[in-house]
């Protein structure tokens, strides 16, 4: 199954072209490419302001081979609502595209968990038939690595700097997939481009879902995380294997791990590979470890394990 999915992805054409301006080692742009491949060409994307918008669309060029619209930072889910409603109304009147179209809203963690939170909540609550994809690189990278509500505890960013009185980010990451699931939408999943076939399967599931779907995709950012550009895929794997970013889905309220980790790896190697955590003391690393383990166990319970 995995092999087949991968083969199909390999054979399918590119819908996000080469020649973009993403940083070296950017895993977010890889995630975008994987999502586009899995979606296929009958797709309309509404993109929030952010890295992926900026690297892909300097006038008069574009990397998008599907219809794509960028308007503002915080309104992407609302724009997608309008596209979806417009297509539905036109179809009734025998206008617009004849085929079924995937309407997709995408943005970073800032656009999703912070500034676009209300618009997203509204669109999910209203039940639009759309997929919302959050590419989570855990800070406002496009504007220069400022903290967001998705920045992990202890990470240094330009607005949660370490200092005599600060250990960096002092809040724990907002649990956005759980918040999406609390809207009782039919499909929520986490994914990571290090697990390409798992990601593709989840995109396909979202596509087949009638109603809102929410995908939260872990997107390693070497520039913002101060990690080696060649380590992106490995870091994604480490995040999953340590339980920092577990892969799961919530289908009609049923929670299920899609990648079971028999024994969680300690977080130390993951932490040590990133400059943003360089200042953390052993005590702080232990504190994070405790929290990660607790959260993972809570997730296992939700998944009935």
């Amino acid at each position: 199954m995995n092999e087949q999915t991968l083969q199909k992805l390999k054979d399918g054409g590119e819908l996000f072209s080469p020649g973009h301006r993403a940083c070296i080692g950017c895993v977010e742009v890889l995630a975008v490419r994987q999502v586009c491949k899995a979606l296929g060409k009958d797709t309309i994307i509404a993109n929030a302001t952010g890295c992926m918008e900026i690297v892909s669309s300097p006038l008069p060029t574009t990397n998008w081979m599907v219809p794509w619209i960028h308007t503002l930072f915080e309104n992407t889910a609302a724009v997608a609502s309008g596209i979806e409603a417009g297509l539905r109304a036109m179809k009734r009147k025998n206008r617009g595209p004849k085929q079924d179209v995937n309407v997709v809203a995408m943005g970073g963690d800032g656009a999703t968990c912070d500034i676009g939170f209300q618009a997203l909540s509204g669109a999910m609550e209203r039940g639009h038939n759309f997929i919302n994809v959050c590419f989570d690189n855990e800070a406002y990278m496009n504007t220069g690595i400022q903290r967001s509500s998705a920045t992990p505890f202890g990470a240094t960013t330009t607005t949660s700097p370490t200092g005599k009185n600060s250990i960096g980010q002092v809040t724990w990451k907002k649990d956005m997939p759980a918040i999406a699931a609390a809207h009782n939408i039919p499909y929520v999943a986490t994914a990571c481009p290090s697990y390409a076939s798992d990601l593709a399967k989840k995109v396909k599931k979202a596509q087949e879902t009638k109603g809102p779907s929410y995908l939260h995709i872990y997107s390693v950012c070497p520039t913002g995380w101060r990690s080696k550009p060649e380590m992106g895929i490995e870091l994604g794997r480490m995040a999953v294997e340590t339980g920092i970013f577990p892969l799961y889905e919530v289908e009609n309220g049923q929670w299920r791990l899609t990648k079971t980790v028999k024994e969680l790896k300690p977080i130390r190697d993951y932490i040590k590979a990133q400059g943003r955590f360089r200042h953390l003391t052993d005590d702080l690393i232990d504190e994070i470890q405790t929290k990660v383990t607790e959260k993972y166990e809570a997730l296992l319970k939700k998944c009935g394990q």
Partner: peptide, 19 residues
């Protein structure tokens, strides 16, 4: 919609789709 900001944003999407 849940706000006027989203009202006009949804209008952007709808009009851009040709509705």
């Amino acid at each position: 919609v849940e706000s006027e900001h989203s009202a006009m944003s949804a209008c952007l999407g709808s009009a851009a789709a040709g509705a």
